[in-house]
Simulated assay, not measured.
Amino acid sequence: MTQFMKPTLVAAALLGLTNACQNASAAEGYEINGQFKNVPVGTTLHLSELTSSQFVERGTAKTDAQGKFTFKGTLPVAAAVYQLKVDEPNQVLLVLDNKSRVTLAGDAKSLPATYSVKGSKDSELMQQLTRHLTASKVQMEALGKRYNAAGQAGQTDSLPAIEKRFYVVQGRSAARTRSLIRREATSVAAGFATLSFVNPDEDFAFADSIAAVQRKAQPGSPFTQALTERLEPLRATAIGTNAPEINLATPGGTPLSLKSLRGKYVLVDFWASWCGPCRQENPNVVKAYNQFKDKGKGFTVYSVSLDDDKDRWTKAIAADGLLWPNHVSDLKKWQNAAASAYGVQAIPQSFLLDPTGKIIAKNLRGEALQAKLAEVLK
């Protein structure tokens, strides 16, 4: 349930709110009125703008004896993400412009779980998403702890069921997220939420459809631009497209093309001997290979290694029992030509191809891989 990430600067996904309900007659400038429970009188609240690399404070307000507070003023840009913070665990993110009129309430000691926002359909959408995703995260973290505990206790027979449940929860969470975003597809919040909460590797078609709506409805939004830029490198390996060709050398030095395996279902599997999560996933791939290699039209694996040491690569193949003959690499680690063509930024990463070479699934793990193969290899 983990990946080894390519070293890079990755921005954290943020929860955001945006005000779409505006008073046309209001004077230029934003206003936030709120009341928090369990906050001492005189507590300083901070409002900070998210710039390209950090939060920059734009204002402060103090709570009164009833926990009430007001922020008002003029913002430096048309619309941006702002953080309203009590302390590190208790903060919310807003998208504000100079016509925003937002009302907040909540418990200052558990703000993310209790806050409410009024005056904006976008904000209500983001509140629903926040609570839904928080609940899903709690479920998945609990399943992750159960999985680790079972593994440490040697209860390996229970691991597949826990893993299966994890993916069920993950799938339902993704479906609910898509449903909520789709309701307000033209809003700024929908663009932000798609960028932040949708995995484009798994939901490319959905993310691309929202990006198309956003380019018409919100052409000036920074989220629209960022979402478009995020999706473009993934277009070549989206589900339903023909897989890019690969032609790299085997350990023996002979070129082996991906196209030569047409006629079978093929798992293009990016891995490396130095990648712990890859080595942990290898037994699942071996199990799937042994179970399905002779069924239907047949199944095989085309393993692309991101190693830079041939000896370590070949020893890992033997140690992990990777019995299929299709092992290739150019021994250039992250500069691997195939990884570049497929936009690989983390491993393990895999692409399941049908007999014509079309991508039909991505990043299937454990029971999910076996279930998909059982479905197509009837």
Rank of each mutant, 00 (worst) to 15 (best):
A80Y: 06
S100R: 07
Y115G: 10
V77G: 03
E88T: 08
A79S: 09
V102Q: 01
M126I: 07
D87S: 03
N98S: 04
L94C: 11
D122I: 07
E124C: 04
N98Q: 07
A105M: 10
D87M: 03
S100E: 06
A108T: 12
N90M: 10
K118V: 11
Y115P: 08
P89H: 01
S123K: 03
E124W: 04
L94V: 09
A113S: 14
V92Y: 02
L94Y: 05
A108W: 02
S123M: 06
P89N: 02
S110I: 09
N98P: 06
A113C: 08
A78S: 09
L84I: 01
S110K: 15
K85E: 12
V81I: 12
L111T: 11
Q83H: 00
T114R: 02
N90S: 07
A78Y: 08
A105K: 15
S116T: 15
Q83A: 03
D107P: 06
Q91T: 09
T114C: 06
L111W: 01
R101F: 12
L84A: 04
A80I: 01
A108L: 08
G119I: 07
P76Y: 04
L104Y: 04
P112S: 11
E88C: 00
L125P: 08
P89Q: 03
T114G: 09
L93P: 01
L125A: 13
V117P: 01
A113N: 12
S123P: 03
A105V: 11
L104D: 11
Q83D: 00
D122G: 15
A80D: 08
T114P: 06
Q83I: 00
G119P: 02
L111Q: 08
D87E: 03
Q83N: 04
D107T: 07
N90L: 08
Q91R: 14
L96K: 10
V117Y: 01
K99P: 03
K109Q: 11
K121I: 10
K99L: 13
K121R: 13
E88I: 05
A113V: 14
N90F: 02
K85G: 00
M126C: 14
L96V: 10
A79W: 13
G119N: 04
A113I: 11
M126L: 13
Y82V: 04
E88V: 05
A108H: 05
E88N: 05
S116P: 02
E124P: 01
